[in-house]
């Protein structure tokens, strides 16, 4: 069993003051369900849906960013607040600094970077994204790269659909993909 919130926040504050924390995490309740949000000094480095295992989601952060990761709601603000109000439809923009340390291949980095050119309310296809980064025909590899997006919602991989129609896959499940698109006014049958 864990400590109470007061002790956890006190520990997080002292660790932050002493430069002893590599990252902070907590679970944030949102309209698309609870999200595990991990924040480093550089930005949001991992967002995981409740359907993913929290320990499995944190393990690569420990390995690649550092093992000194502490639970603290206070220290994942303002990212947590921005995410929950965006997903509640209270704000139309979600601009948060991201830390892409968990992105390990240049190809995946390119795919995720290309997504920033797909604005809220619009969609693209895996094939189109592949063409955009100069790898026509690599639609499947683009799909794999998006499936490993460490920061879904903030890097909007839900805006990528199959050219054959339908929703395609999504790390958080296709129903969440539909919800996220509907929030942006996009309806997919």
């Amino acid at each position: 069993m864990t400590l109470d919130m007061r002790m956890l926040e006190r520990l997080a504050d002292a660790a932050a003051r002493g430069g002893l924390a590599d990252a902070f995490y907590d679970t944030v309740d949102t309209t698309v369900g609870p999200l595990l949000v991990v924040v480093t000094g550089r930005g949001v480095c991992r967002i995981a849906f409740a359907s993913e295992d929290a320990e499995a989601a944190l393990a690569p952060v420990a390995r690649l960013v550092g093992p000194r990761i502490l639970r603290s709601r206070r220290h994942i603000e303002p990212a947590a607040g921005a995410l929950s109000s965006y997903l509640a439809g209270e704000r139309s923009e979600l601009r948060l600094p991201v830390d892409l340390t968990l992105v390990r291949s240049p190809f995946q980095a390119e795919v995720l970077a290309a997504l920033t050119a797909v604005p809220r309310g619009s969609v693209t296809t895996y094939g189109e994204l592949a063409r955009r980064i100069g790898h026509p025909g690599a639609a499947r590899a683009v799909g794999t790269a998006l499936g490993r997006n460490p920061v879904p919602i903030v890097v909007p991989c839900h805006r990528v659909l199959p050219s054959t129609g339908g929703l395609g896959g999504y790390g958080g499940g296709t129903e969440r993909k539909r919800l996220l698109l509907e929030l942006e006014g996009v309806r997919v049958s």
């Binding site: 069993m1 864990t2 956890l8 944190l58 952060v61 093992p67 990761i69």
Partner: peptide, 18 residues
């Protein structure tokens, strides 16, 4: 075994350590 996130250790053992 790799080092787990420190926060998970606190979650697992915090209450008994306290």
């Amino acid at each position: 075994p790799p080092l787990p996130p420190f926060g998970l250790l606190v979650e697992r053992h915090g209450a008994e350590l306290h």
